[in-house]
Design a protein around this nucleic acid. Structure first.
Length: 891
RNA sequence: GGGCGAAUAGCUCAGCCGGUCCAGAGCGCCUGCCUUACACGCAGGAUGUCGGGGGUUCGAAUCCCUCUUCGCCCACCA
C-alpha cells in the first residue's frame, strides 16, 4: 500500500491517519531489512528481548525509542544498520504467570504434568509474544523483523547446549552441593542477582541457651525459628567473656539437644551478645563455621519453608513464620527470652515471587566466573568497552571484581533443559544429546532442571545470528556496536553478554553500553502495572501519536537520567511532543501549499541553480542557521546526546524556520515581493534538512511530509535518505549578524507596542539610527520583513534621540524610536529609560571593574579578555545612546 | 556498614573537564491577539540567594571540603 501523498492535509495532525499505513509501507519496501551482502560498514543494535510475560510499558517505549533513533541515524548515515529484535522466554517469570492462570482454574502444574504444562506455556507466549511485537511496530520500531528470534527457538537452544557443553568441557561448569538462595514459593534456586535486598524494620531476639553445667548463654538472632536446627554456638576466640566456655556445651531449649560451643574468628564480638547460634543447614556463614568445626548439618526447613520432621512435634509442619512466633512464645514461656530489640536489617526477596528467600543447602549447577570475568575486566579497563553514563561502568567493574560463581540451574519446567544425561546409578555421564544412550543401548535420563533464563540471554548477540554455525549474518553483524538498556540489568544481562561473548567469540558483543533512565511517576516511583501507576503505550499512541511519544521521551531524557511522567495527566505529560508534532505538520502543510511548479536547487551545478546574489539576508541567514544546526545535531547524535539532538532540531524548526523565516518570506511566496522562487528553494531545502534531522526521533511525520516534497518518486523514503552533512560554503557570519539585528529590532518594536498598548492591527512608524553601515544595510535590505513582523508602516533612517515616542537601543548601539503620539506617557517613558540606564550602568561598572583588574587581564586567556572588552563596549554604547535619549526628552 | 548520584524558575528538567550564563527549555502563570500553516497557535511579560556553610581562583551553578534532604548500587554482622 502506498500512502496517499496527494490528499489535502487537515489543519490538525491526526497520527492514526498516517502511522499504521506508513509502517506497512516501510515493511513492504524492506526499509528496515539489513543486507549482509551490501559491503557497507555494519551497525548493529541488539534489542533487549522483552519478556513474553506481559505487554510493553513506558519503560520499553523509552528504551526502544532510543534504539530506534540511533539505528535510524546510522542507517541514514549509510551504515548497513541492523536492529535485531527478539523476545525472551523469561523462565521463572513466565512460569509464574502461567501457574497463576492455572491456579484460577484450580489447577497446579503438577496436575498437568511437565509436557502438558510446557505446551500450555507455549500457547501463552504465542499470544503475548505477538502482542509485544505489534506494540513495537506501533511506536515505529525499525527493527529487521525477518531476523526476529525467541530465546527458546531451536537455533538459540542449540547455541545454549553448545555453550553449556563447551564451558563444561573446559571445567567452567560444575555441579555441587552449595548454600544457595532458595525461593520457597517458586520452589527453585536463584542466583545472587535474583535476590533483592530490602531494608526491613525487624527484630533481634535475645535467647537464653542454658549451659550444660548451669547458668546460661545469650545468643541474638533475627530468625528464631532456625534455632531448631542449631548444632553449635560460636564465639570469637579472643572474647574474654566466653573464652572459658569454649569446649563446653549448651542444652538447646525446645529440642533438648546438647550442642558444643566453638571458637571462630568470623564472629564479631561487638555485635549482639558476641555469641552466635550456628545453623549450618540454613545460613551461609553458619555453614562455613559448621564445616570448620565439624558441626552436623540438620535440615529443619523443607523446600516450601515449612518445618520438617526433624523438629519436635509442636513445630513440625508449621510455616517458618508461624514457627518463629511459636518458638519465641515458648522461649518467653520458659523464661528464656532475655529481650527483643528493634533491628533494621536487609531481607532478601525473590525478584519474581517476592517471597523471602531462604538460604538452603542444595545440589545445583554452577558456572565458575572468575576466569570469565578477567577478560571482561580487561576490556573495560582498557577502554574498549565504555558506558554512558560513565559511572555505570564503575558498577560493572566492581561487580566483576567481586564476582562469585553463578548458580544456573532452576527447578522449573519452562526453559532450556540442562543438557546433561545420567545413568540409572546416578553417574553423570554425558553432556551431549548424541550420547544420550550408553554403548549398551541403555537410555539415559536427562537432568530435570532448566537453565537460568539469563544464560540464554547472555548468548543472544551471537546465538541470534546463527552461532555456533559460521553464518554470513554472524560474519557481518557480529560483533555489534551499541547496547541500549536499563541500568537494572547491568549484572543480569550486560555483564553476562560481555563475558560469554568474549569466551565464545573472542569479541566484545558491543563497544558502547548506553543505559537509559527509568520512567517514573511524579512521586518518583518506578512505573509498573502492579503499582497501578503505569502508562500503556497503546493508550498514548492513538491519542498523541508515536512521534509525540518518542519526542516527549527522548527530549526529556539526558543520558542516564530518569523520565518523570504523570499517568493521571497524559495531556500535560505528552504536550511537548504533541504540540511539536502539530507544529511540524503545519509548517509542512504551509510549505507544501505554497509550492507551485518545480523548485530550483540552491546548490550544485544543475541548471537553474539559485545564485548567491539572488538570496536575501533572511535566505542567507536561514541557510547558515541550518548548517549550524546540522553540525550541532549530528554531533549530538554521535555523542548519544539524544535530548540535545532532538531539542536542537526542534528549535531550528519552530523558532528559526517557522517563527522567523516563514513569516519573513510570506510576501515573496504570495507574489507581493520579488524572489518567490528563490524563497521556495530555500524553504524546501532547509525544511528537507530539518525533516532529516528529526527523522530518527519522529519517523512517521517526517516521512509523511518528506514524501510530498517536490521531486520525490513514489518509492522515495526518508528512512534511507542521506544524513545532512555540514557544508562549509553555507557558513555566513555576516548574514547571521545582520538578521540577528533585524530580529532585535523587530522584538524591540513589538515590546514597545505591547508596553504602550498599541492595538494589534495598528501600524506604527519607526525611526532607526543605525550604529554601523552594516546595520543600516541590514535594515534597508530587510525593511519589508521589519514592516511585516513588527507591524510597522515605514522604517525611517535618521536621528532618533529627539523624537517623542518609545525608545530602545539594540546591542550594537543602534537607537530606535517608535513615535506613538498620544499613547506616549512622557513620565512613564522616562521611568522605563531610567531603569534601563540603571541596569546598563551597573553592568558597565561591574565590567569596568573586571577589566581594570590586572590579575584578570594578565591571567585570563586573551580571547576571553577580548570578549569581555566587547561586552563592555556594547554596554557603554547602549548606555550612551539611552542617556542621550533621556536628555533629549528632558527626563 | 561501604560506594555512587541528585538538590537550578510554581512543576519536570537541561547546562556542570571554570569565563561565550547580565542563568536556559518545556509545561504552568499574566497581558493582548481566532493575523488566509498551526489557539496542540502568535506576540509580549513575570518568576531563580543555581539546597545551607566554608574554601580554591583574577573569575564558580560549574572545582574542593562540610552539613542537610532525597535516590541508587553493593554488603554473610547473626
Amino acid at each position: 500500500m502506498t500512502p496517499d501523498t496527494t490528499a489535502p492535509l487537515p489543519p490538525q495532525y491526526v497520527p492514526a491517519d498516517h502511522e499504521p499505513a506508513l509502517y506497512r509501507w516501510w515493511l513492504d519496501h524492506g526499509c528496515f531489512a539489513a543486507d549482509a551482502t551490501s559491503g557497507r560498514a555494519p551497525y548493529v543494535i541488539m534489542m533487549p528481548p522483552p519478556n513474553v510475560t506481559a505487554h510493553l510499558h513506558m519503560g520499553h517505549g523509552l528504551n526502544n525509542a532510543v534504539q530506534d533513533a540511533l539505528i535510524r541515524f546510522e542507517r541514514m548515515r549509510g551504515r548497513e544498520a541492523l536492529w535485531l529484535p527478539g523476545t525472551d522466554h523469561a523462565g521463572i517469570a513466565t512460569q509464574t504467570v502461567v501457574e497463576r492462570l492455572l491456579a484460577k482454574e484450580g489447577k497446579t502444574r503438577h496436575d498437568l504434568g511437565r509436557e502438558a504444562f510446557v505446551e500450555r506455556v507455549w500457547e501463552f507466549v504465542g499470544q503475548t509474544g505477538a502482542t509485544i511485537l505489534r506494540q513495537l511496530e506501533t511506536i515505529g520500531a525499525s527493527a529487521d523483523w525477518s531476523r526476529t528470534y525467541f530465546t527458546l527457538d531451536p537455533g538459540p537452544a542449540r547455541a545454549v547446549r553448545e555453550a553449556f557443553v563447551r564451558l563444561h568441557e573446559k571445567g567452567l561448569i560444575y555441579r555441587g552441593l552449595r548454600m544457595i538462595n532458595w525461593d520457597p514459593v517458586a520452589l527453585t534456586a536463584l542466583s545472587d542477582e535474583e535476590v533483592e535486598m530490602h531494608e526491613t524494620e525487624g527484630k533481634l531476639w535475645h535467647l537464653r541457651y542454658p549451659l550444660e553445667h548451669g547458668g546460661h548463654l545469650v545468643v541474638a538472632t533475627t530468625r528464631p525459628e532456625t534455632m531448631l536446627g542449631d548444632t553449635g554456638i560460636a564465639v570469637h576466640p579472643e572474647d574474654d567473656r566466653y573464652r572459658h566456655l569454649v569446649g563446653t556445651r549448651v542444652r538447646l531449649p525446645l529440642v533438648d539437644r546438647l550442642i558444643p560451643i566453638v571458637a571462630d574468628a568470623a564472629i564479631d564480638p561487638a555485635f549482639g551478645t558476641g555469641a552466635v547460634k550456628v545453623t549450618p543447614a540454613h545460613d551461609a556463614t553458619d555453614h562455613e563455621i559448621g564445616q570448620r568445626h565439624g558441626l552436623p548439618v540438620l535440615e529443619v526447613m523443607a523446600p516450601d519453608a515449612t518445618m520438617t520432621d526433624a523438629v519436635p512435634m509442636p513445630f513440625r509442619g508449621l510455616d517458618r513464620f508461624t514457627a518463629r512466633e511459636k518458638v519465641v512464645a515458648e522461649f518467653a514461656e520458659l523464661g528464656l527470652l532475655e529481650k527483643v530489640v528493634p533491628h533494621k536489617h536487609a531481607v532478601g526477596r525473590s525478584y519474581r515471587s517476592n517471597a523471602v528467600v531462604e538460604p538452603r543447602l542444595s545440589e545445583q549447577w554452577f558456572v565458575r566466573m572468575r576466569p570469565l570475568a578477567e577478560p571482561a575486566l580487561e576490556a573495560y579497563r582498557s577502554g574498549r568497552l565504555r558506558f554512558i553514563p560513565e559511572r555505570r561502568g564503575e558498577e560493572f567493574e566492581r561487580w566483576l571484581v567481586n564476582i562469585r560463581d553463578w548458580c544456573i540451574s532452576r527447578q522449573l519446567w519452562w526453559g532450556h533443559r540442562i543438557p546433561v544425561w545420567y545413568a540409572d546409578d546416578g553417574r553423570h555421564v554425558a553432556s551431549r544429546e548424541d550420547l544420550a544412550t550408553l554403548p549398551d543401548g541403555t537410555p539415559l535420563r536427562q537432568d530435570e532442571d532448566v537453565l537460568d533464563t539469563w544464560f540464554s540471554s547472555g548468548l543472544v548477540p551471537f546465538s541470534a545470528l546463527g552461532w555456533p554455525d559460521r553464518t554470513p549474518d554472524l560474519a557481518v553483524f557480529h560483533p555489534g556496536h551499541v547496547l541500549v538498556t536499563g541500568p537494572d540489568i547491568i549484572f543480569f544481562w550486560v555483564a553476562r553478554m560481555v563475558m560469554l561473548g568474549l569466551e565464545f567469540t573472542g569479541e566484545l558483543p558491543f563497544t558502547t553500553v548506553y543505559l537509559n533512565g527509568i520512567v517514573r511517576d511524579p512521586k518518583h516511583r518506578k512505573m509498573s502495572k502492579s503499582a497501578g501507576n503505569g502508562i500503556d503505550p497503546l493508550e498514548v499512541v492513538p491519542r498523541f501519536g508515536a512521534d509525540a511519544l518518542r519526542y516527549t521521551m527522548i527530549s526529556a531524557m539526558a543520558a542516564g537520567t530518569d523520565v518523570i511522567l504523570d499517568p493521571n495527566d497524559l495531556d500535560t505529560s505528552f504536550a511537548p511532543g504533541r504540540n511539536f508534532a502539530n507544529k511540524l505538520w503545519n509548517a509542512g502543510r504551509f510549505i507544501l501549499a505554497n509550492l507551485d511548479g518545480p523548485v530550483r536547487p540552491i546548490a550544485g551545478r544543475a541548471a537553474g541553480v539559485v545564485r548567491r546574489e539572488e538570496l536575501t539576508v533572511h535566505d542567507r541567514w536561514l541557510i547558515a542557521r541550518c548548517d549550524a544546526v546540522v553540525r550541532e545535531v549530528g554531533e549530538s547524535y554521535a555523542k548519544f546526546r539524544l535530548n540535545e539532538a532532538a531539542t536542537g532540531a526542534y528549535h531550528f524548526l519552530w523558532s528559526d524556520l517557522a517563527d522567523w523565516y516563514i513569516e519573513a518570506v510570506k510576501p515573496r511566496l504570495y507574489g507581493e515581493a520579488p524572489g518567490g522562487d528563490v524563497a521556495r528553494a530555500v524553504l524546501v531545502r532547509c525544511f528537507d534538512t530539518a525533516l532529516r534531522l528529526l527523522h530518527p526521533v519522529m519517523p512517521f511525520l517526517t516521512e509523511t511530509l518528506w514524501k510530498r516534497l517536490p521531486g520525490r518518486d513514489a518509492d522515495a523514503t526518508i528512512s534511507r535518505a542521506r544524513w545532512p552533512e555540514p557544508d562549509p560554503r553555507a557558513t555566513d557570519d555576516a548574514a547571521l549578524r545582520a538578521f540577528a539585528l533585524v530580529q532585535e529590532l523587530v522584538t524591540a518594536v513589538r515590546g514597545i507596542r505591547a508596553e504602550y498598548g498599541v492595538a494589534p492591527g495598528q501600524a506604527v512608524a519607526v525611526t532607526v539610527a543605525p550604529a554601523s553601515a552594516a546595520a543600516e544595510a541590514a535594515f534597508r535590505d530587510e525593511a519589508l520583513t521589519i514592516r511585516r513582523l513588527a507591524k510597522v508602516s515605514a522604517v525611517a533612517v535618521g536621528e532618533a534621540a529627539h523624537q517623542e515616542g518609545g525608545h530602545a537601543v539594540l546591542t550594537d548601539g543602534t537607537a530606535i524610536v517608535v513615535p506613538l503620539g498620544d499613547l506616549i506617557d512622557r513620565e512613564k517613558e522616562c521611568l522605563r529609560l531610567g531603569a534601563e540606564c540603571e541596569r546598563l550602568r551597573q553592568l558597565v561598572a561591574a565590567q569596568e571593574g573586571k577589566l581594570a583588574n590586572e590579575q584578570f587581564t594578565s591571567r585570563a586567556p586573551a580571547a576571553v579578555v577580548d570578549k569581555e572588552r566587547e561586552k563592555l563596549a556594547s554596554w557603554r554604547e547602549q548606555l550612551g545612546v539611552l542617556e542621550a535619549n533621556r536628555g533629549a526628552l528632558g527626563c
